[in-house]
Design a protein around this nucleic acid. Structure first.
Length: 499
RNA sequence: GGUUCGGUGGCCGAGCGGCUAGGCAGAGCUCUGCAAAAGCUCCUACAGCGGUUCAAAUCCGCUCCGAACCUCCA
């Protein structure tokens, strides 16, 4: 088992791999930016949430007590700074003629369903932005008190220029304030802000807005960035261990969180900033701005023009695990189909491994044994090196080949020691199921159906004995059409699986 | 335009100074009544050009190409 002290993570803030040392020994506080529930999640979202899921699972595996906080953004925020402020949820609600909270509920439910399908563990706390208006207002008041925010016409803005003159604003995202000044587009209606880079902490709600809350500055709604700062502070403290999210959130979202917390709490919020990379489609980031997202419901059903078939949740999870989380991952049907087949082969070999045991009648293969020990031990090493799931899987596949060889292939006359089998089984189970979060997907486990299939196998066996191959092939082919695959094993037995 | 990060075999992707991951696809063979699965074998790449080094996909420089962020975005 990997020791806790050897975990290394890539910290976006310092741009290097660092040894992970928690603030409170044995405990980890992790905050991950959750979904905005004004629409359906797509493949790109899945990558982020799967990434932080296996990170969470690995921290648990190492023995940490983890408090994993992932928020739900259910309060709309302005579409674009400077333009006419509009509450996203309100806007869509008007279009769809739904109550804003009805929409929030619908997409929250859908999000939870997708997370379960993908086998993501539930976070320890899943706070909502609208449930923490009080904390958000309190934090804004503190920032005003410190002199880093100003009130204008019922809205509150963070004074980025003043902050940047005293603190390293832009370090996380690699931005220089002067560059931002030059490159920020000229937008209408920016007049009320002192500087264009200033961001809203609180926005006055126009009369037509439905979602609105009373505040010292009038009725309005919180800025996007303040939600996360208020909720992470409340549940994880002024300084916590890990802050995660997609790379596209580094600026302005996470940069702003750092500024807010630094002023209100006198602390950088997180020690380690972890960011997952994007999924691309034809070389372009999958995302709202490009209108090229494939929703999770579409992935699972195959109902999208770009999809040649449906892809199961585990196929998608495996597809994502095969790439390091900080690399871009390119979507294609070919890649997904490769993932589907690879996962099937891996999972079946894993099931075989669980059945294998030391066989005193066979020769012990010490060379192979050493390889099993080495490769299985390396799982720990790879995961502890910034969560390299791709390398863990590569090792597994090498062992898949050996497992199959031991069973029926070129190594079938040899065996491994009981200790070796035990270790390999334990490592595979820990990693595949507990850490990578994969699971079997065979649909039917119906006792009656199994009975019927077994009966048909008996009948087919009789036919085969009589060399009545037309009957035996008919049974096999018909079952195959129903998605039930029969395999004649070498020992004369027959196995079946629901495809 | 600024900042950052990339360009690896038919496709997807690890690796980031020496030991030429892995998956999928393709070819041949073995097993099998035939299939399927599995095994064995083959296909062996690092954008281009220079440089550093005993040794470079890996370090440095230049060129070409691409992406992300600078605006809501996982």
């Amino acid at each position: 088992m990997a020791s806790i002290s050897s975990l290394k993570v890539h910290n976006s803030y310092t741009r290097q791999k660092e040894i992970f040392t928690p603030i409170t020994p044995g405990h980890v506080g992790m905050y991950v930016c959750g979904p905005t529930v004004s629409g359906e999640s797509h493949l790109g979202h899945a990558r982020g949430f799967i990434t932080f899921d296996f990170i969470y699972r690995y921290l648990l595996h190492l023995g940490y007590e983890v408090r994993y906080v992932r928020n739900i953004t259910d309060a709309g925020h302005f579409e674009e700074e400077g333009r006419e402020a509009e509450d996203k949820i309100t806007r869509k609600a008007v279009l769809e003629r739904l109550e804003p909270m009805e929409l929030v509920q619908k997409y929250t439910n859908l999000f939870h369903w997708a997370m379960r399908e993908l086998n993501n563990l539930e976070p320890s706390i899943e706070p909502t932005a609208t449930g923490h208006i009080v904390e958000e207002i309190t934090m804004i008041e503190e920032i005003i008190r410190q002199g880093y925010a100003y009130v204008i016409n019922g809205s509150v803005y963070f004074d980025v220029k003043k902050y940047a003159s005293e603190y390293p604003y832009g370090k996380l995202s690699g931005k220089v304030l002067d560059d931002l000044l030059e490159t920020t587009r000229t937008l209408e209606g920016q007049d009320e802000k002192r500087n264009r880079q200033d961001f809203a902490l609180w926005k006055l709600a126009p009369p037509e807005h439905i979602m609105r809350w009373a505040s010292p500055w009038g009725e309005g709604f919180p800025g996007w960035h303040i939600e996360c700062s208020a909720m992470s502070t409340k549940y994880l403290g002024k300084e916590f261990d890990i802050h995660g999210g997609g790379m596209d959130l580094q600026f302005p979202h996470h940069e702003s969180e750092i500024a807010q917390s630094t002023i209100a709490n006198h602390h950088m919020p997180a020690r380690y900033w972890l960011h997952n990379n994007m999924i691309t489609l034809n070389g372009k980031k999958m995302g709202k701005s490009y209108g090229n997202q494939i929703r999770l419901t579409e992935m699972f059903s195959g109902g999208h023009p770009l999809l040649q078939q449906a892809y199961s949740p585990m196929t998608i999870r495996f597809f994502i695990l095969q790439t390091h989380y900080r690399s871009t991952l390119d979507f294609s049907n070919e890649a997904l189909q490769a993932a589907e087949k690879g996962l099937k082969r891996l999972w079946e070999a894993y099931q075989e491994l669980l059945k294998l045991n030391f066989d005193p009648a066979k020769t012990r293969n010490e060379e192979l044994e050493n390889q099993f020990f080495k490769y299985c031990r390396e799982f720990d090493e790879f995961m502890s090196d910034d969560f390299n799931t791709a390398k863990v899987l590569a090792n597994m596949f090498t062992l898949v080949n050996h497992i199959n060889s031991l069973k029926t292939g070129s190594l079938s006359k040899t065996t491994l020691s009981a200790e070796c089998f035990d270790f390999a089984k334990r490592q595979f189970k820990d990693y595949l199921e507990n850490i990578l979060g994969l699971k079997g997907e065979s649909k039917a486990d119906n006792g009656k159906l199994n009975g019927v299939v077994e009966l048909l196998i008996e009948i087919r066996k009789d036919a085969k004995t009589k060399k009545d191959y037309s009957t035996s092939d008919k049974i096999r082919n018909q079952l195959q059409q129903l998605g039930i695959l029969l395999k004649d094993e070498k020992d004369g037995g027959v196995s079946y699986s629901f495809g």
